[in-house]
Design a protein around this nucleic acid. Structure first.
Length: 879
DNA sequence: GGCATAACGTA
DNA sequence: CGTACGTTATGCCC
């Protein structure tokens, strides 16, 4: 412990200690949900808090390096030249760490051209002169030279930064055999690999100490180098200049000009609000109380917390008529919450920043607020779609949708599982939304009421807006919210599915599956569960002794690709029977799930999950209408069960052809690819002609298949390995194909490379319209993680831009149908395809609107080609 | 009932 | 060792 009569100055090397923490703590456990790595920050702060608690410094500073360049690199260009660039996950943490220190009112020092250790040396020297007990905390051994009666070094041990070893003068002598001021002499002789400073070959600490002790000083040793015998003596004589250089470079400067004095380092009260804000942002929940305790600011912290966690206002229960007058008196945006029971509105809660009101939903309520609800007055929801649907069922329409917290939260962090307002309150306000405990019959805690939920919705909105870049905000307002309204109506509309067609097919398939199963049992001489991969493995690899296949977590794969391979290597009738059985049962499953989803109106109402993907695509559940089979002739019988509904004339399908390749052409500006799309020639034929150097007319089917696989693979970040597997060709041939392809379409390769590089720099990808997707793993040292991220980052702008374009087309079609007072309506979206139910006499108008709005949804450097089909059912309408 | 896994359907 | 999804049955857990 330090002498309590003397003030204590603690100076810390922020860079070296945070760097150690970075490698000591697993990055996976220390990342915010949006992917910001915090292990270095956390480790450093944790250490610093412990240090302050133990040492109680009166004065404190943390020094950082400014860059790798310093006066030392100018003197000796090789200095530290062997160090690899510090990982960008680490670099990004330094500014955040400095923000934390600023909030904790701790002085941060850095100076161009000097290293952190020079600043430490200067401060320590000044502090000692001014009568301080000085503690230097650094992970750099050069700071050993600073130790004297007044200056103690705290040096992290190998495990990390949690344990600091205390070096006073005696401890240095005990450990290194020389007093601190002579340690740089030892280091100069031995050299410092991490600084790229070679020493005398074969000379380690032992020899160096022996020499210094024997000759008394480094200078004396160098003058008498001829007296040193043996191989090491020769080595010494040959490396005198290296030693002198090392000694020059490892001397820390003690007279760096600094913009402040030791007095300025006096420990200051922390900014409780600031600490809370930045620590919350970094999700340092446990550090907050530790800092608070340290600073003696529990009270302030608690005050800040409770000031932030304002209790929701008690929502006043209003009579229906009073809702309208309350709304008239309110101004600005209103938070809206509709609770739903049996698909219909049950209660409504409204809130402004100042107050909340609520009411049961009734005909009177509806009448009272309908003018406001359907008008342009701005309304903010959390997960608006089900609420809009419930209102619509009750005959109420909503205008002026200004924000949706769930959709906004997803746009900011598409990888998050935030699906409820409670999640967002937790994450963005760092508060708990009051929730009734569902496990208790009589809950101790009351859940928030609709009015209060609306109030929280407004507060979360404010927090979300604070984080939204204008471009992302534009995606919300210009794409997502109009899409949301459209999706609500599509879900309400549903699509007619013929139970009769499905059940007939299902029976056929069931009979066939049974028949195949019996044959299969006969083949292998026993009954197994053909749906159990586990039992199949026994049959295939033990009983039938077929060659082992691709490994899975639990054994060997029995998937279709593997079974097809096996059939070639070691043909066996069981394999084909199994494949056929799978096909029949799979189709039957899909039919059954579809059939049970048919509602009383004979229609299937899927739910489109607007926040269901990381790229911007929709997903579809209950049932999933985006994976209805289409590949085989037989499976299209399922599509044939999707029929035009009563009161309508026909189905229209419209799909974008090769939209992702077109986006690729646009983004890469590849002249060849752009020409391909402008030429009117079949894309793959055109590309094949270029790649194989033949006339388009002479492109064979095999050639076309290959370039088609290549083109599509590009969008997914394919490898030669993957391509060879897909096409069942040699890897060398796949490699050759890729080379030829890129020779002809070089800009495509350039674009793909540069787009991943840009994402690595930015930390996210962006679509043409500004939708972002973060990719923290692009700089991961873990190769698997990094390469997975690279492929996903390659694909995200392309898939995402296609999704943006389809959404824009979709809601514009929806709006134009309404504007032209058509009864026709969009029913389904399958990523690049729309299915429209066309009313009597509206074909021409509907076809024109769909074609035009899909065609002009985005202005790319190539046209957007739209294929349209017509028929009484989905299969017929396909073209 | 809840969970992970393998398999497979779509764009 | 090609992206993005959702659903199903099995097999295991409690």
């Amino acid at each position: 412990m330090t002498d309590s009569a003397k003030p204590t100055l603690l100076v810390v090397d922020g860079h070296s200690l945070a760097y150690r923490a970075f490698f000591a703590l697993p990055v996976d456990n220390f990342s915010t949900k949006d992917g910001q790595h915090t292990n270095g920050i956390y480790g450093f702060l944790s250490m610093l808090i412990n240090l302050i608690k133990a040492e109680k410094p009166t004065h404190l500073a943390v020094a950082f390096d400014t860059s790798r360049q310093s006066f030392r690199t100018r003197e000796y260009t090789e200095y530290k030249a062997n160090r690899s660039e510090s990982p960008s996950e680490f670099k990004g943490q330094i500014p955040l760490l400095q923000d934390c220190l600023a909030a904790m009112s701790i002085q941060v020092l850095q100076k161009e051209d000097f290293e952190a250790d020079d600043i430490l040396a200067t401060l320590a020297t000044q502090g000692a002169e001014q009568g301080f007990d000085v503690l230097v905390c650094s992970g750099d051994r050069d700071t050993i030279q600073l130790v004297n009666e007044d200056i103690t070094l705290l040096y992290p041990n190998v495990q990390g930064v949690s344990q600091l070893k205390r070096y006073d003068r005696q401890a240095v002598i005990d450990r290194y055999g020389v007093p601190p001021e002579q340690y740089p002499d030892i280091a100069a002789l031995v050299g410092e690999t991490s600084d790229n400073l070679p020493g005398v070959p074969k000379v380690g600490e032992k020899t160096a100490v022996k020499w210094i002790t024997q000759f008394g000083s480094l200078d004396a040793l160098l003058e008498n180098a001829d007296k040193v015998t043996g191989v090491v003596g020769n080595n010494l004589r040959e490396h005198l200049d290296d030693v002198r250089r090392n000694r020059t470079l490892n001397r820390l400067l003690r007279d760096v000009e600094l913009p402040l004095t030791i007095d300025d380092l006096e420990v200051q009260p922390m900014d409780a609000q600031g600490v809370r804000d930045i620590f919350s942002r970094l999700e340092f929940k446990t550090l907050i109380p530790r800092v608070a305790e340290l600073a003696g600011i529990e009270q302030q912290m608690a005050a800040v917390a409770s000031a932030a966690a304002v209790d929701a206002p008690v929502a006043a229960e209003l009579a229906p008529a009073d809702l309208a007058s309350w709304l008239e008196r309110s101004s600005g945006e209103v938070g809206v919450t509709i609770t739903i029971e049996g698909g219909l509105p049950r209660r409504i809660g409204l809130a402004t920043a100042a107050a909340a009101v609520e009411s049961d939903w009734s005909a009177e309520t509806a009448a009272s607020i309908q003018p406001w609800l359907s008008g342009d007055a701005p309304k903010i929801f959390s997960d608006a779609k089900p609420q809009l649907k419930a209102l619509a069922r009750a005959g109420a329409t909503v205008g002026g949708l200004a924000f949706d917290t769930i959709v906004a939260g997803w746009l900011l962090r598409p990888s998050f599982p935030d699906k409820t307002l409670a999640d967002l309150v937790d994450r963005f306000l760092d508060e708990k939304l009051p929730e009734a405990d569902p496990t208790q019959l009589v809950p101790e805690t009351e859940g928030a009421t609709p009015g209060q939920l609306s109030w929280y919705t407004l507060r979360v909105t404010e927090a979300l807006r604070g984080e939204m870049e204008p471009a992302v905000s534009a995606v919300l307002l210009d794409i997502e919210l109009p899409t949301l309204v459209t999706l609500a109506e599509m879900e309400l509309a549903g699509v007619t599915v013929s139970h009769a067609k499905l059940s007939a097919f299902s029976v056929e398939l069931a009979e066939r599956a049974d028949g195949i199963a019996q044959e299969a049992y006969a083949t292998i001489g026993r009954e197994v569960n053909l749906g159990s991969p586990k039992q199949l493995q026994e049959v295939l690899f033990e009983e039938l002794q077929l060659p082992k296949t691709r490994k899975t977590k639990t054994g060997y794969s029995t998937d279709a690709a593997v079974l097809a391979d096996l059939q070639e290597q070691a043909p066996h009738p069981f394999l084909d029977q199994l494949l056929q059985h799978r096909e029949a049962t799979k189709l039957r499953q899909i039919i059954e799930s579809l059939d049970t989803a048919i509602d009383a109106d004979e229609r299937v109402h899927t739910t489109y999950v607007q926040t269901g993907s990381q790229t911007g695509r929709l997903s579809s559940t209950d049932p999933n209408l985006q994976n209805i089979p289409v590949r085989t002739q037989e499976s299209r019988r399922i599509r044939a069960a999707f029929e035009v509904g009563a009161g309508y004339d026909t189905l229209l399908t419209a799909d974008y052809s090769q939209i992702e390749m077109r986006i690729m052409a646009h983004l890469s500006e590849d002249p060849g690819l752009i020409e391909a799309f402008n030429s009117g020639e079949d894309l793959h034929r055109f590309v094949g002609a270029r790649v194989f150097g033949v006339d388009p007319a002479d492109v064979t089917n095999a050639m076309r298949t290959k370039v088609k696989a290549m083109s599509y693979g590009l969008v997914y970040g394919l490898s030669a390995f993957g391509l060879s597997k897909q096409l069942r060709i040699e890897q060398a041939e796949a490699k050759q194909l890729m080379m030829e392809y890129f020779n002809r379409f070089g800009a495509v390769r350039d674009y793909l490379r540069s787009s991943v590089e840009q994402a690595r720099i930015d930390g996210y990808t962006a679509t043409i319209f500004g939708r972002r997707r973060p990719f923290p793993d692009l700089t991961s040292p873990n190769r698997v993680l990094r390469e997975n991220a690279e492929r996903a980052a390659l694909n995200a702008p392309i898939q995402g831009s296609a999704a943006d374009i389809m959404k824009i087309a979709l809601f514009r079609i929806h709006r134009e149908f309404a504007a032209e007072q058509l009864h026709s309506r969009v029913l389904m979206q399958i990523h690049d395809e729309l299915v429209v139910e066309v009313a009597d006499g509206e074909w021409d108008a509907a076809e024109r609107i769909v074609r035009e709005r899909m065609g002009d949804a985005a202005a790319l450097s190539v046209p957007l080609d739209v294929q349209i089909g017509r028929g009484g059912d989905w299969d017929e309408a396909a073209h």
